[in-house]
């Protein structure tokens, strides 16, 4: 290695004959970066992509890939079987509609959201390395929103993947393309809404309960157990001829909301007490939007606090 030539640090006093040299910082080639820098949008985008990949274990260790892909495999399996059944026996329609399929695998979708939310939300909050992100250059608000968007996208991909298999399989089996496309398009806004709600709820819980296990169980409690309990309530309400109670109880669970709206849209989902009347339907829409939006506000507040 060639000896680097000693040069004076810019801020150091230039030594003279009278002044003894007390120290010198060698120029070993470090340079300031003076070129163009990416803006916030670009930084936010790369955080988004990284978080999205991490939700599926991509760019992480092999062990972190096992779980998301196991779940993805499990949710695709019935779709593949259904496509095979349709093709083999020459059915003229899908075994399940797109919206109904998602409802069928709600356990898997919920577990996916619950188990992957902590990878996006709690790891750096727990280790307090979050402060490094928030010191600069992204604001706490943007950072929280971007992570939420990544989780919502991950959930959406998880929901859409088997639907796409069904759709493509259906078209290849020569099902009526117009019917299939219509049914698929009906499911799409519901999928979006569901992904947003799941990301909001599980993301907020993951950012609060930092232990992974507790975050997962807490999310399952909020998403799935509540939904199971509420469908029991709906069943009882229908039995006792008080469907209004069932309709109102549906306002408190993401699955009940999505399924209720699906039945209104005639997307092929059976609901015991579907929302009746314009008021109740708009209440469902409003509740779903609130369920997606309110936790996001709480998330932003959480990140603001953590960044301080």
């Amino acid at each position: 290695m060639s000896e680097p030539s000693p040069t004076q640090h810019p801020t150091a006093q230039h030594p003279t004959a009278q002044q003894p040299v007390t120290g010198v910082i060698h120029d070993i080639g470090y340079r300031r970066y003076t070129g163009p820098r990416d803006g916030d949008a670009r930084i936010a985008f790369s955080l988004y992509v990284t978080a999205l990949k991490h939700a599926y274990g991509l760019g992480r260790s092999g062990r972190s890939k096992v779980l998301p892909f196991l779940l993805l495999g499990l949710t695709l399996l019935p779709a593949v079987i259904m496509v095979g059944v349709v093709a083999m026996f020459g059915f003229d329609e899908q075994v399940r509609t797109y919206a109904a399929y998602t409802n069928t695998v709600q356990v898997l979708v919920s577990i996916f959201a619950a188990s992957q939310a902590p990878t996006i939300f709690s790891r750096d909050l727990r280790s307090r390395s979050i402060v490094l992100y928030l010191a600069r250059p992204l604001s706490a608000r943007t950072s929280a929103l971007v992570r939420w968007a990544a989780l919502a996208t991950a959930c959406l991909i998880f929901i859409l993947a088997p639907q796409l298999v069904l759709y493509v399989g259906g078209l290849l089996s020569r099902l009526d393309a117009g019917d299939e496309t219509l049914s698929f398009l009906k499911a799409l806004p519901l999928d979006l809404l569901l992904a947003a709600m799941l990301a909001s709820i599980t993301g907020l819980i993951a950012s609060m309960a930092l232990r992974r296990g507790f975050a997962v169980v807490g999310s399952i409690l909020a998403v799935l157990v509540v939904s199971t309990a509420l469908s029991a309530v709906q069943a009882i309400a229908a039995e006792f001829d008080s469907p209004r109670t069932g309709e109102i109880s549906g306002l408190f669970s993401p699955w009940a909301l999505v399924n209720g709206l699906a039945s209104v849209m005639d997307a092929g989902v059976e609901v015991i007490t579907p929302p009746q009347g314009a008021v109740m339907v708009s209440a469902y829409v409003l509740a779903a939007l609130l369920m997606a939006a309110l936790p996001v506000l709480a998330l932003v507040a959480r990140f603001r606090k953590a960044g301080r």
């Binding site: 779980l67 898997l108 619950a114 188990s115 399952i220």
Partner: peptide
């Protein structure tokens, strides 16, 4: 397993439930 919670959930909800 590190992901004991998730495996347990799969067992309870998917295997025993669904």
């Amino acid at each position: 397993w590190k992901h004991a919670v998730v495996v347990g959930l799969l067992f309870v909800l998917l295997w025993e439930g669904t």
